[in-house]
């Protein structure tokens, strides 16, 4: 009997230890990024990194590690992705949540959710062999690799996130809101747009945040279609280089424990902090939506 109870306690401890690993890994990632990332600033200044307008680690004599063009690359590609992804995603979610039922709903949701796990290299490949020539011919520009292409591919990649999280947000709106609207003679459309959607607004905003996080953290697909020139883009066809792509391109060639190596960790730190902040905000928005219904 005693042994059994001891075993029960041991089991609990084992489970707790495993669960704690998630927190440990998160802290570990932050730790390494901080330790390595901050060493960048023995070789270059903090201001030079944060506000520097050029990223050129291979320059003879004086390599420069300026974040601005890379941040601009990440920011602009994500902006285009969201400009397409938000309207399409939220509209799709409203349709799924308010109009689809039964088997059809399951099929549509499954396709959307499985696409979230579609290999990003394959999408990048598609961008390279289909979208790029298409852009080049349609707009008569020399190269279809750049901001527009990357934005388009990222829009596709952020859509599953925006759709599923928005759908969840709409589904938790209590049925009593819909009934109240119907009983006043509202059509399903009016009910969806003027009652359900506004009631779910924090959850929808969370969906947008998570879609943003997905787009800004994506590496392989953008690496393949963005053109990769670390300049601040002036036009929608210009090549850009994102933070993620920079790490992917340069980490393979850089000797360990050089300023350049550390600078790539500093980039990782920037990405990590953006992703973490995005997630925490999204989480609190989702909590806020759920709380707003339990009054």
């Amino acid at each position: 009997m005693k042994l059994r109870n001891l075993g029960d306690r041991a089991a609990r401890l084992v489970f707790l230890a495993n669960a704690l690993l998630a927190a440990v890994v998160l802290l570990g990632i932050l730790g390494y990024l901080l330790v390595y990332g901050l060493r960048t600033f023995t070789g270059t200044s903090v201001a030079g990194f944060l506000f520097g307008g050029r990223w050129n680690p291979d320059a003879y004599g004086e390599p420069v590690y300026g974040l601005v063009p890379l941040l601009a690359g990440s920011f602009f590609t994500t902006l285009i992705a969201l400009a397409v992804g938000i309207p399409v995603g939220v509209a799709g979610a409203v349709f799924i949540a308010e109009r689809l039922k039964g088997r059809f709903r399951v099929v549509v949701k499954t396709v959307v959710e499985l696409f979230a796990g579609f290999p990003s290299v394959v999408l990048g490949f598609f961008g390279l062999v289909v979208v790029a020539p298409f852009i080049s011919r349609l707009f008569n520009v020399p190269s279809g690799l750049g901001l527009l292409n990357a934005g388009f591919i990222l829009a596709l990649m952020s859509l599953p996130t925006i759709i599923s999280v928005s759908d969840d947000a709409l589904r938790v709106v209590p049925q009593s809101y819909r009934e109240a609207a119907y009983a006043l003679g509202a059509t399903p459309w009016t009910t969806a747009i003027r009652v359900v959607l506004p009631a779910a607004k924090s959850g929808i905003l969370a969906a947008v945040m998570l879609g943003f996080g997905r787009a800004i953290g994506e590496t392989m697909a953008v690496l393949m279609v963005a053109g990769n020139a670390a300049i601040i883009p002036k036009a929608i066809f210009d090549p850009v280089q994102t933070i993620t792509a920079t790490i992917a391109i340069e980490l393979g060639e850089v000797p360990f424990h050089t300023t350049h190596f550390y600078a790539l960790f500093a980039l990782g730190l920037v990405l990590f902090l953006i992703a973490l902040a995005t997630n925490l905000v999204a989480e609190s928005l989702i909590r806020r939506e759920k709380k707003s219904f339990t009054l």
Partner: peptide, 26 residues
């Protein structure tokens, strides 16, 4: 029909809007 026949439910179900907007909704 539903405009001509109003309904009040078992549990109060105001919309998450202002008092004014709730009444103005219909």
């Amino acid at each position: 029909l539903r405009r001509r026949v109003g309904m009040v439910f078992q549990k109060p179900n105001p919309f998450p809007k202002s008092i004014f907007e709730n009444v103005a909704f219909g």
